[in-house]
């Protein structure tokens, strides 16, 4: 803190701390904490609501008894005695009525109950969708890596630098184009009357309901997120000294040995970034299933989360779903960092 003040002067140091604090605490930490908190409680009937209702019944009985007493009091001999008795009974009735009102609000007002039951709400069907979404995201990640590794290697190490820069610039175009457009292109291709079904029709197959069966979601996901694997891989492979590869080859290493012992170890940070990005984007993708299924195929997990909040209006269960997804993605980040032995500082560049 003193270093900060010495570097920038007190007013600016205060501003820097204020801005960073607002961002880190107000925008990043607080919403996550509140979301987790929200997932851990629900509004419930108060504890002991049953006993309360028995007690209320008893009080009502007592009230009825008082009414009988009151009727009986009218037959008392002296008017003054009647007056006194009536006043006493009325006071008792008022007290009883107040007590009943209190108990009834206590019985009716739901109380905030801490519980893990929001997480258990994910029944068989939703759990299956959760698992499907995660498995599909893992598959997208694996396919993206398998397809992109040779591409990134070829561009970074086999092309002359100037040509490599041009190729990467060309790839920026499909990469930077809005994700929705990439998805929409595949919706057209896989549509019932689309070009793919037209081509299949020529050889006497189909038409195949790609969109309605949900398989289109997977195809479009691979297409939409594959370039998030190419760029990180290319960036690390570009920094690999080609002499290392040449030396290994001169010493008699086979191609797969060169990749296993030299290229892949060097590419670890890029692999980590590529896998984390691809997995996270796929697992949390709302756009791809939303556009590709048109509501005809079974929903994906992001859609379930959306529906919990904005259609079922069950914010506690919705928060539990969101936290589950967050937990899986965070787990994947740690897994990748551990498997590939990279630190966060190597990742975010």
């Amino acid at each position: 803190m003193t270093r900060l003040r010495r570097s920038f002067g007190a007013p600016m140091a205060a501003l820097i701390v204020l801005l960073t604090g607002t961002w880190v605490l107000g925008l990043i930490a607080a919403p996550q904490v509140i979301m987790i908190e929200q997932s851990l409680w629900k509004m419930d009937r108060p504890a002991g609501a049953d006993e309360l209702s028995v007690q209320i019944d008893r009080l009502y009985n007592r009230l009825d008894m008082l009414m009988l007493d009151r009727a009986a009091a009218r037959t008392l001999r002296t008017p003054s005695a009647t007056e006194a008795k009536l006043a006493q009974i009325d006071a008792e009735r008022a007290a009883l009525a107040a007590e009943i009102a209190d108990l009834e609000t206590a019985e009716r007002t739901p109380v905030k109950t801490w519980t893990l039951s929001n997480y258990a709400q994910m029944g068989q069907a939703h759990l299956r969708i959760f698992a499907k979404t995660i498995l599909a995201s893992l598959a997208v990640t694996a396919i993206a890596f398998a397809v992109c590794y040779p591409i990134a290697f070829a561009i970074a190490k086999l092309e002359p630098p100037r040509r490599a820069a041009l190729i990467m610039l060309a790839l920026v175009i499909p990469y930077a184009i809005n994700e929705l457009l990439r998805v929409f292109a595949w919706q057209m291709i896989l549509n019932y009357g689309g070009p793919l079904n037209a081509a299949l029709g020529l050889v006497g197959i189909g038409p195949v309901p790609f969109l309605e069966s949900g398989s289109g979601v997977f195809v479009a996901m691979v297409y939409a997120y594959i370039l998030f694997m190419v760029f990180p891989l290319y960036n690390v492979l570009e920094t690999l000294d080609t002499n290392q590869i040449e030396a290994a080859r001169d010493l008699g290493a086979k191609t797969w040995q060169i990749h296993r012992r030299i290229v892949l170890p060097h590419a670890r940070p890029g692999i980590a970034v590529g896998c984390i990005m691809t997995f996270m984007l796929s697992a949390g993708s709302y756009s791809v299933p939303y556009i590709m299924t048109r509501g005809t195929a079974a929903p994906w997990f992001a859609q379930l989360v959306y529906n919990r909040f904005f259609q079922a209006s069950d914010w506690n269960v919705g928060a539990a779903y969101a936290v589950s997804l967050l937990a899986v993605c965070t787990g994947f980040v740690f897994l990748m960092m551990r498997l590939l032995k990279v630190r966060l500082r190597d990742i975010a560049k």
């Binding site: 961002w23 880190v24 925008l27 990043i28 930490a29 607080a30 919403p31 996550q32 509140i34 979301m35 929200q38 984390i276 996270m280 984007l281 697992a283 949390g284 709302y286 992001a302 989360v305 959306y306 909040f309 914010w315 919705g318 928060a319 969101a322 997804l325 967050l326 993605c329 965070t330 980040v333 966060l344 990742i347 975010a348």
Partner: peptide
Amino acid sequence: AMVSPLLTPGIILGISTVIF
């Protein structure tokens, strides 16, 4: 803390802000 939003699914960032 500062890079964590880049590793969080976008829908989580959106919904947690709305909840907050």
